[in-house]
């Protein structure tokens, strides 16, 4: 399969009046179409920075990022970004939140509206179309945020700790939801997380980063039956084996 995303020798230096900080150094990895890749690493190793670079909202100091063989220079609609918080606009109802991106691109066609409506319906949010965000639970809000991203039909989803603001029970449920949505919509995803369990439960591959300046320490291919949900993966023996391996790498 072809690489959807290629990252070559990426470097990033942050500047502040008192110092400069090398956040990323010689970062190289690639993501194939249909993969779910998680990035884990010690805090401050530049995980979120990588996503900002892929999304084109930050420029690298050197190195390059190729998405579908095109160099990323600015935000593109091939990439959808999901944040830690749902960032729903409180003054817009669910339907308007979901179609925000389409409105921005002035592509609120009947076809796209139909697609948005079908996503809401498929993931159990249709009856809340005219509700305000404040009327929804945290898990539902995060699903709305995902649908808002999917409406723009991105090829690559960037997930920046999208579950960490949820309580534990909701988190496990939403992980299953999001994983099945991404699978059934046949999207490629890159997840950044500090939760090793979450990474093992959801991904096909895990990129382990070193502490700052962040660079690839090891890439681990996970061998799970693709039909397993994240929740059910947690029950297997090899789940803990993977955990021990990653834990060891992070020490």
């Amino acid at each position: 399969m072809e690489n959807l995303l290629t990252i070559n020798n990426l470097q990033l230096i942050y500047h502040s009046p008192k110092s400069e900080t090398q956040a990323l150094k010689d970062l190289t990895f690639s993501v194939q179409e249909g993969e779910f890749v998680s990035i884990v690493g010690p805090s401050g190793c530049g995980k979120t920075t990588i996503l900002s670079l892929i999304a084109g909202i930050l420029r690298p100091t050197s190195g390059e990022i190729l998405l579908a063989n095109e160099k990323i220079e600015k935000p593109t609609s091939l990439v959808g970004y999901m944040f830690q918080r749902d960032n729903l606009f409180e003054w817009l109802n669910i339907w308007k939140n979901v179609t925000l991106g389409l409105r921005l691109k002035k592509s609120l066609t009947n076809e796209n509206k139909e697609y948005a409506r079908s996503l809401l319906k498929k993931y159990g949010l249709e009856e809340f179309s005219s509700s305000m965000p404040s009327e929804l639970s945290g898990g539902m809000r995060q699903r709305v945020a995902l649908i808002r991203t999917l409406c723009l039909r991105p090829k690559l989803l960037l997930l920046d700790e999208p579950f960490s603001a949820l309580d534990y029970q909701t988190r496990l449920l939403v992980q299953d939801d999001v994983s099945s949505i991404i699978k059934s919509e046949k999207k490629t995803a890159v997840l950044v997380t500090h939760d090793i369990y979450e990474a093992i439960a959801m991904s096909t591959r895990i990129v382990v980063l070193s502490s700052r300046p962040g660079t690839v320490k090891k890439i681990i291919d996970l061998d799970f039956d693709p039909a397993l949900t994240p929740f059910n993966r947690r029950k297997l023996k090899k789940f803990n084996k993977y955990f021990d391996e990653i834990w060891g790498l992070l020490q």
Partner: peptide, 12 residues
């Protein structure tokens, strides 16, 4: 919130 501005930017 800065994150909302970033969100708008990622949506072009």
């Amino acid at each position: 919130e800065k994150e909302k501005i970033l969100l708008m930017k990622t949506m072009g």
